[in-house]
Write a protein that binds this DNA or RNA. Sequence first.
DNA 1: CTGATTACCTGAATGC
DNA 2: TGCATTCAGGTAATCA
Length: 324
Amino acid sequence: MPELPEVEVVRLGLRDWVMGATITEAQILDPRSLRRHLAGVQDFQDQLTGTRITNISRRGKYLWFTVVGQHGPTALVAHLGMSGQLLVKSGQQRYQHQHSAPDPALIPQLKHLKILLNCKRENGEEVELWFVDQRIFGGMFIDTFVQTSDWLPAGQSEVPESLIPAQVTHIARDPLDEHFDGEELFQRLRKKNTGLKRALLDQSLISGVGNIYADEALYEAGLHYQRRTAHLTRSEVQRTVAALREIFVRSLAAGGTSFDALYVDVSGTPGYFARALEVYGRENQPCRRCAAAGTQQLIRRETFMNRSSYYCATCQPRPRNRHS
DNA sequence: CTGATTACCTGAATGC
DNA sequence: TGCATTCAGGTAATCA
């Protein structure tokens, strides 16, 4: 499932391949992936054709290209949802060569190919950008840039430079953002009456965190997912943020978490962070931290918010009541 | 404001 | 074998 590290791996791959490239044509193979582009398929194609990609950015799980055409810069926004992929295809891997005798390795991707952008790189090479999405929770859309309605960091008089797509303004800064403010998060958590994991998954409070990394960070911070946010201490919030950062950085270095072919980088290569997960997917397996201490607790799985939560009952003690 | 529910989706895995 | 059910979960809208 693409969360922050997976999206960042994709962003870095895209930067290498299509930064500076011109979009020569946009083919829409399934209009459902343009659900969030309200102006429709034709408008999407018209707006993109002939533009040049000048930047590729990310906030949380949202990724966008700055594309410059005759009407100034606009944002081509992509969200991978549950199963979205952005793939770069060059040479014989391109769609235009797959009609008569498709490459067998490409068939699963071709089956779910939704949007195809023909690009011409600055060196003249023609490559294709594929948006592939099995479950269609993701999609692309074109948006205008707005200034972030940002808080002013304490002691600073200038808002950090930040133009972001209008439909991304409600997404909070993520833990790898240089302007992320842990104290601000702490203050907002204290004002809410909700559970810690629910808050971590709320992209308007902190972004980039999904089910897997929420469980991993809570485990590392030693906090139960049902802890009430209003009663967290500053150091507990700091521990959680530090855990998220550390896990994100390690996962990024490993190329992200891949359970199957649903998450891959722009070249189709999976990441290998799945084997570094401490709790997610480890139901009834021994907690490595407890095992080291000799108590041998087993990882538990509970259903929460229509998804699984994994935790160690010893390392992450359940709060006794609604005040803890 | 909060939390619960639902819709949006497909395919793999499971149940009978 | 076949058909029905369950599960995976990110986002956003709706409802109480």
